[in-house]
Amino acid sequence: MDRLIALSLLLVFFSLSCAVFVPAEKAHTDQLVFHNPAAGKVQLIGDWNNWGGITGATGTVNPACGIMENDNGIWTAPPPDDLERGRYRYAFLVNGAQYFPDPANPERTVFLEHEVSVLLID
């Protein structure tokens, strides 16, 4: 019963708070966007850059790899413009410690036990 009440309250709160959505920050797929005002640094890492170095010989994320530009908590970066047609996995790495999938992209998968996004280049 407690579980049902907790879930119901959460869903009611969810419904009320979502009554109005914020405008999309950017609709272009050539620019990846992540909203996080509290982050000190956000990196765009994925299959095209060896996940910042994780899949490389060192297994270490290079803190200089894929740094996104910050504009009042809205972090943006374009994916590489020379990607071949296909699917590429990527994620946002916040402060070198936390992995987040792209909230604007519903296509997801799992990589190294992290939920990540899939970029479709066509």
Binding site: F21, P103, P106
Partner: peptide, 15 residues
């Protein structure tokens, strides 16, 4: 099923 929303009041929801 999955849903991600950023609401007007600034709450990021993920279902």
């Amino acid at each position: 099923a999955g849903l991600d929303i950023l609401s007007e009041v600034g709450i990021a929801w993920a279902v």
